[in-house]
Design a protein around this nucleic acid. Sequence first.
DNA 1: CGCTAAAAGCTAACCAATTGCGTTAGCTCA
DNA 2: TGAGCTAACGCAATTGGTTAGCTTTTAGCG
Lengths: 187, 187
Amino acid sequence: MSRQMVRPGGRSARVQASVHTAVRELASEVGRDALTVPMIAQRAGVTPSTVYRRWGDLQELLSDVAVERLRPETAPGDHGALAADLTAWAEQFLDEMSSPAGRAYIRDALLGDPDGGNAGQCSAYAAEQIDVILTRASQRGEKVPDVETVIDHVVAPLMYRILFRPDGLGAAYAHRLVTAALDPTGR
Amino acid sequence: MSRQMVRPGGRSARVQASVHTAVRELASEVGRDALTVPMIAQRAGVTPSTVYRRWGDLQELLSDVAVERLRPETAPGDHGALAADLTAWAEQFLDEMSSPAGRAYIRDALLGDPDGGNAGQCSAYAAEQIDVILTRASQRGEKVPDVETVIDHVVAPLMYRILFRPDGLGAAYAHRLVTAALDPTGR
DNA sequence: CGCTAAAAGCTAACCAATTGCGTTAGCTCA
DNA sequence: TGAGCTAACGCAATTGGTTAGCTTTTAGCG
């Protein structure tokens, strides 16, 4: 888990919030690679030593912020059928993650992450969203694969290509993956 | 592609080689996280400014070294049948990549890699190996899937779980992926 | 064999990163 | 509600990673 085991209210919470927003603001102003701890601290109205004590180093801070931004803000849409729901979700997922900013967030989340906790959180977000879609389809009476199958057949290929082969990715590929994963002869 | 567009022979090549070996030696001596550019430069018999000029920063240097170490050194073994060849390859792949050292190399390769060239190289290595296996099987007269299918169904799930969910990975999972990918009803 | 340009060495100044210590503020229990 | 306790923060000084400008070397070529 993250290092948000801080006192829940008061100054600690304020510091954390202002540091996080400072990171996001500065990242969009000067670019992610130009970020430094002193720069962030100044914008947040905090001293650099506070940042070092709370987060250890810049990478862990960026990893925390990245996970926060990768958290889905809305439940997956309901289009009346499993295939449509999954396709729409996969296309949106690909869209958000394959942008330069999205790739940078993924890499940051993977990076400052010795114990693998933050990366696991990202995967858990996707699994939650898929579970919502599958549960809804199941209640409609549709036959559904399990979450792990969808992760192996849809999420993993998308993520692999986002990270290792950013070229030639599009909605068509996402659609194809979903269709193959749901094809009964493919199960 | 990498930044190895240097003069092919002479001093440039010597400097690059000695810097790379310095990184590998020091990484095993003091640990990857303790590496610094001045430290590497001294071991390599070079001034720090040379490293900064050639590689930009430590991350890009580590990314180059990581890609070099992720290059397979031997052709995939021949076990007489496609399923056996692929299973053996997948198990070895998983074994090498899921170790702490392997994960560190992957993350380094992804990291100092703005244009995605180094990551693409890693993927190309895997594709080459798979192509060798498939071509061999095809010459035996076996019916074979194409490379992209194997990447989607085997390599991507393995890599996804290595990066995002390191727990509970084993040879059995790799074997299961290969079997599913080759199952005719699964295509 | 001399010319040219790319690449490496060198030095010094800058500023990010880090750490120790004193102070503040939030939580808890009487 | 207020006194005590401790986690968290600010301050300041030190270290050393990083960069820029200039000189020197060397590989490639006519």
